[in-house]
Simulated assay, not measured.
Amino acid sequence: MTSLATLSRGDYRVRIIQDSDQRNPRSEFTNLAHALTIDTHLGNYIEVDPDGGPLEAAWKRVAWNYKAGVDTFERYARIYHGATVIEHRPARGAVSLWYLTAADIEEHGIENPEALIRTEISQYQAWADGEVYSLLAEKLALLQEIGKPEAPIRREWNSFHAESGLYGIEYATEAANDLLDRAPETWAAVSG
């Protein structure tokens, strides 16, 4: 298990490790925003989310001409459904439309729909780019064979806390620093 980064304070350290076992957050978690995949590569990308939400049928009617279709869909969604729509065009990967209808916003009491959509996009894109991480907290132990004071002292890191499912290296680094800032005695309680 290779660490991408290690943050240390005294006898404690937290290693950031790439987590290759995480599944698509669109299928693993409850998401509030809806995502529609724009097929710009003749079906060569998997869908961002197989359930395009309540406006999926409207998108399918205009998707044949995706360039004009995006503008048409955004206008329709905004005028008839009070939707907030964000187009996502990553450097690599599927192009997509993300949206929340006025009904979604009201039902869930969302104060900043654009921020919520951008958070879900960021989480999905981190997963799609393979940027999901785990943390492994360790404490340095000094070990010597019992009854042999002349025996060499070995240094060994013992892990005692782990967290997984951290999307994006910035978030993982922030979580590792937060973990080191807390008293190590609280780590066991955090790990559940």
Rank of each mutant, 00 (worst) to 15 (best):
T2M: 11
T6F: 01
S8K: 14
R9L: 15
G10A: 10
I16V: 15
I16S: 13
I16L: 15
Q18M: 06
D19I: 03
D19R: 00
S20N: 12
Q22D: 08
Q22F: 03
S27L: 13
S27R: 14
E28M: 14
F29V: 02
T30H: 09
L36N: 03
T37I: 08
I38K: 01
D39I: 06
D39C: 04
H41E: 11
L42D: 11
L42G: 04
G43E: 08
I46L: 12
E47V: 11
P50F: 14
P50M: 14
D51K: 05
G52V: 08
A57V: 10
A58N: 06
A63E: 15
V70I: 15
D71F: 07
R75C: 05
A77Y: 10
R78M: 11
Y80K: 13
G82Y: 07
A83G: 05
E87G: 10
E87S: 12
P90S: 10
A91M: 12
Y99A: 00
T101H: 06
H108Y: 11
I110A: 07
I110Y: 05
N112H: 12
E114S: 13
A115N: 04
L116T: 06
I117N: 01
T119G: 12
I121T: 05
I121N: 02
S122L: 10
S122I: 03
Y124A: 02
Q125H: 08
L135Q: 07
K139W: 06
L140P: 01
L143I: 15
E145T: 13
I146L: 05
G147F: 04
P152H: 06
I153F: 05
R155L: 04
E156C: 00
S159I: 00
F160V: 00
H161A: 14
E163C: 06
L166D: 01
L166V: 02
L166F: 09
L166E: 01
I169D: 10
I169C: 01
E170A: 15
E170C: 00
T173Q: 12
A175L: 05
A175D: 04
N177E: 14
N177D: 10
D178Y: 02
L179Q: 02
L180S: 06
D181C: 01
A183Y: 02
E185W: 09
A189R: 13
S191T: 14
S191H: 11
